[in-house]
Each structure stands twice: as C-alpha cells, then as structure tokens.
Design a protein around this nucleic acid. Structure first.
Ligand SMILES: [Mn+2]
Ligand SMILES: [Mn+2]
Ligand SMILES: [Mn+2]
Ligand SMILES: [Mn+2]
Lengths: 146, 146
DNA sequence: GCACTAATGTAGCCTAACCTACGTTTTGAT
DNA sequence: ATCAAAACGTAGGTTAGGCTACATTAGTGC
C-alpha cells in the first residue's frame, strides 16, 4: 500500500483538476467556434449545439457565458465570433488537442479512441506536461528518420 | 486546416467526455475512501474533505450521492465504508490512476506534474487506451532490461 | 408577397458541486 | 462528571450545465 501524500499536496492536486474541469466546456466551445469559422465561415448556435450533442438552448446559454468571459461576441441571429482573447485561447487549445491526439497515437492507442479520449484528456494537460509531450513526439520522429 | 469530423462523430466524442466528467468526482471519492480505509482504518467526512480541499458539507453531500449510487454505506458519526460495488470501482480506479502516472513519468513528465495532471486525466482514459498504456509500460520495462 | 420551415430566442425546470453560517453530537482531558 | 474542542450535520444559497416547451424571427420557394 503506497503512503498517502500529505493532505495539502493532495488537496492542491484535486483543486487543479476541479479548476480544469470548470474551464473544459469553455475551451471546447472556443475551439469548435474557431474550427467552424475557419472551415465554413460562420459559427451559428444550432451548428455548435449539433456538433457538441447538446440542445440549442444549452449552447445559447454557454455562448452567453463566453460573452461574459469576453471570449466571443454574438448578436441575435448573427452568429458567434471570437474576440482577440478568444482567438488566442482557441489557438492554444487546438494545438494542445492535436498534440494530445498525436501522443496517444504514438503510444499505440487506436485512432477513434485517441480522438475520443483526447477530447477529455486535453483539458488536464498542464504546460509542463505539454512540453514533455512535444519532446516525446519530436524524438519519436527523429527515431523514425534514423 | 483539418477537415471537421462528421457531426454525429464529434457529438459522440463530446458526449463521452461529458459523461466522464460527471463520474469523475465519484471516482475520486471512492479511490480516496479506499486509500483512507487501507492506511488509517477509517474514512471520516472531515478527512475526506480536507484531502479533497473542499468544505465538509460538500463532502457530506457527495457522500450522500455515493450512497444513492450504492457505492458506500455511511451512518451519522460513524464514518464511510465501501460496498462491494464501491470496492470494485476503487480497485479499477486506483490501478488506472497508477498506470496513468507511470505513463506520464515514462514520457518524461516531472513527478509532481505527472501526479497532478493524472488526477484529471485518469477519468478520461478509456479501456482501450488503458490497454495501450499497459503495453507501452511493459515494453518500456523490457527495453530497459535489454 | 406569402407561407412554410428552420433557426433563434425565452421561460422555467433539474441536478451536481461548490460555499457559509449555525446548531448538535462525540470525544477526550481534566 | 464536566466541559471545551473537534467533528458532524443541517439550512440555505450560488453557479454551471444540462433539459423541454413554446414564442418569435429570418430565410426560401413558389
Ligand atoms: Mn475537449
Ligand atoms: Mn478539443
Ligand atoms: Mn482524479
Ligand atoms: Mn485518482
């Protein structure tokens, strides 16, 4: 039986996971909105809802939260757009998402499981971990060349 | 710009992540209760709350939910115990937690980041992915021997 | 231009997960 | 046996993230 970590240490870890959980939804929305804007030119509440698998009122509610957090602008019947802050977040989130998928694939996880699990995992990957992931992928590529 | 996945595919992935998020708290409680029972012989609401970094009423509320889900038994002033179902879940969750930490460490993630990130990541690792992780670790060990 | 349809918005509801404030029960030390 | 402190429980409140049902607006085809 492993010794338990010190109370405060464990509490800090759980706290980080809680805070990541609370921003996960926002991150998914900005990433998706950015993708929709990039590929179709617009991001409308109904599309967002359908792609997320939620009802459209749920999407509209969350879009309101995104507005409050200054990540998007949206006006009735006009679709959703990213603010500067939103664009910046979207870029970071998309890059992280891709890297997480790549790492899972490199570890031998089948494609669809990698894509599905990454959708949840990504939100809990810290910067330090992300750096380690990037190096791992870089090294894997080097090994393949040699 | 990568092509977007089909709507239903993407919705299914997001749905899985949502459902994992909704069980994450239960999993952490069960794992922690099991650890406390194993090392100190008892799991009291206050200890649980302190280790999770939440207020004790929050812990008590969640323990009530665990009871509803038939994962624990608890009576006033008497501490918390795992049901069969709870024990089973605890074992699975603990094994998964350890494996996730091991994989992160093997990828070069520093100890504390590995422990902290694993606390969130673990809940989004599917069985298929877990299997790939196990093989990766086994192979890494073999390589070290050779 | 009208009418139907799809999209959007609004209202109202629910549960989970957090909190503070306060009252009650146990526990343990004199 | 008493009593203070710690643990526990309860009450009541907030926010996020879901939902359904219904009303309104916008867009399209005729
Ligand atoms: Mn995601
Ligand atoms: Mn993503
Ligand atoms: Mn966890
Ligand atoms: Mn854990």
């Amino acid at each position: 039986m492993q010794p338990l970590p010190a109370e405060q240490t464990q509490a800090r870890r759980f706290g980080k996971a809680r805070s990541a959980r609370s921003t996960a939804v926002l991150e998914d929305y900005v990433e998706l909105i950015s993708d929709l804007l990039g590929t179709t030119g617009e991001a409308r509440p109904t599309d967002i809802a359908r792609r997320l698998g939620v009802s459209h009122p749920t999407a509209i509610d969350t879009i309101a939260r995104l507005k409050r957090e200054d990540l998007v602008t949206a006006r009735p019947y006009r679709g959703v757009f990213l603010t500067e802050k939103g664009e910046t977040l979207a870029k970071r989130v998309r890059a992280r998402h891709r890297l997480v998928v790549d790492v899972l694939l490199a570890l031998g996880v089948p494609q669809e499981a990698a894509e599905a699990d990454a959708e949840g995992i990504e939100h809990h990957v810290s910067d330090v971990t992300l750096k380690a992931f990037a190096e791992f992928i870089r090294d894997a590529k080097d090994r393949r060349k040699a």
